[in-house]
Computed example of a mutant assay.
Amino acid sequence: MAIIVTFDMEDTAAAQELYDTCIDRLTEGRGFASPADLPVPGLLAHIAGPVGGRWRVTDVWESPESFEAFGKILGPIIADLGYEGLRPDVSPAHRVVLR
């Protein structure tokens, strides 16, 4: 079952910097233009940007297990950057439609 994972942070400038740094570390500086650029399979969709003075990252993962595998890589990166308390909201997806 697909899941929706959302990270929401208050400080847009600091949050965007955190996001960019995480992407750089996750992809070893290669950039992120496709789900295949991440170190684990299973990402179906990814959106990141400012929303109402906050910074939001929303992913759709094909299963909780695929996100858990990703979290094992992302979690230590976030902790190393001083945001160990950052936790996503995780919800089951009712429907996922992709182009």
Rank of each mutant, 00 (worst) to 15 (best):
D59H: 14
D59N: 12
D59V: 01
V60Y: 00
V60T: 01
V60S: 00
V60E: 00
W61L: 01
W61N: 00
W61C: 00
E62Y: 09
E62F: 02
S63R: 09
S63G: 14
S63Y: 11
S63T: 13
S63K: 04
S63I: 05
S63A: 06
P64W: 02
E65M: 15
E65K: 12
E65Q: 05
S66G: 07
S66T: 15
S66E: 06
S66W: 05
F67D: 03
F67I: 05
E68S: 13
E68A: 05
E68P: 12
A69S: 09
A69N: 05
A69W: 04
F70K: 05
F70G: 02
F70Q: 04
F70S: 15
G71H: 11
G71T: 03
G71F: 09
G71D: 09
K72R: 15
K72L: 11
K72M: 08
K72D: 07
K72G: 15
I73Q: 07
I73W: 04
I73L: 15
L74P: 00
L74M: 07
L74I: 08
L74E: 05
G75I: 07
G75H: 13
G75L: 13
G75C: 04
P76I: 09
P76F: 09
P76T: 02
P76G: 05
I77M: 01
I77V: 11
I77E: 03
I78G: 04
I78P: 02
I78K: 08
I78N: 03
A79Q: 06
D80F: 11
D80R: 04
D80T: 13
L81C: 00
L81W: 00
L81G: 00
L81F: 01
L81D: 00
G82V: 03
G82N: 06
Y83S: 15
Y83F: 13
Y83W: 13
Y83N: 14
E84M: 11
E84R: 10
E84D: 05
G85C: 11
L86T: 04
L86M: 08
L86F: 02
L86R: 01
R87Y: 06
R87E: 03
R87C: 03
R87P: 08
P88C: 04
P88E: 03
P88H: 06
D89I: 14
D89H: 06
D89E: 08
V90L: 10
V90G: 07
V90W: 11
V90C: 08
S91N: 14
S91G: 12
S91Y: 04
P92K: 07
P92A: 15
P92W: 11
P92V: 08
P92M: 13
A93P: 14
H94C: 08
H94L: 12
H94Y: 15
